[in-house]
């Protein structure tokens, strides 16, 4: 059996084909869920974020233009949903602001159900500001180019590179502490 392309599934979903939408959703839900886990640090939040992302994707499906990849478009929406999610959870915290210390917020570690190696990385990432964390996520896990990352985040390529550079500085220190 030939697997239907994203574009074919989207066309069918837009015509009201529920199965096509579910096929498309299942194709990407794992990536989005794990993206949510790394971005929020909690399974429950990751699940909530994933649901919000897919609801938003479905609502905006008609505006998707097939000149770019669906995956890139999906992660762009996921990024904006993630920002909104953070604003609801931490309305006083900016995207560039440092998050609260992990020790002051032990729920990250407690509420995370994943492999131990994953957990250490996720805990370290939670200590980065959202903007830097997003670049790390999209670059190393999403495997996007800086141009794609800049497009998804609505910034310039140089800004994206600067954020990653700063994030790597912090992660180096954090991971040294974690693995010490």
């Amino acid at each position: 059996m030939f697997e239907k392309s994203d574009e074919q599934l989207i066309v069918k979903a837009l015509q009201g084909n529920k199965k096509a939408w579910l096929d498309l959703l299942k194709r990407y839900e794992k990536q989005i869920y794990n993206y949510g886990m790394r971005m929020t640090g909690k399974n429950e939040d990751a699940l909530d974020l994933m649901q919000e992302v897919f609801i938003s994707v479905f609502r905006n499906l008609a505006s998707f233009r097939s000149d770019g990849s669906f995956r890139s478009w999906l992660f762009r929406i996921a990024h904006f949903r993630c920002i909104e999610f953070y604003r609801r959870k931490r309305p006083m915290q900016g995207l560039e602001d440092e998050p609260e210390l992990v020790c002051a917020n032990p729920s990250v570690d407690e509420n995370l159900s994943t492999a131990q190696e994953n957990k250490q990385l996720i805990v370290a990432m939670q200590q980065l500001p959202l903007a830097q964390k997003s670049v790390v996520e999209l670059k190393f896990f999403g495997q996007f180019t800086f141009e794609e990352i800049a497009h998804q985040m609505g910034t310039s390529v140089n800004t994206a590179k600067s954020r990653l550079y700063v994030a790597l500085d912090k992660l180096k220190i954090l991971m040294e502490v974690e693995y010490a």
Binding site: A13, G16, K18, W21, L22, L25, K26, E29, K30, Q31, Y33, N34, M37, N43, L47, M50, Q51, F54, I55, V57, F58, R59, S113, T114, A115, E117, N118, L121, F140, F141
Partner: peptide
């Protein structure tokens, strides 16, 4: 680490609810 990252399985959720049409 990203290479060796083990993706967590997605828990069951109401996928059909996202089909809001």
């Amino acid at each position: 680490q990203a290479n060796s990252y083990q993706d967590s399985a997605v828990p069951n959720w109401d996928r059909a609810a996202s089909f809001t049409q």
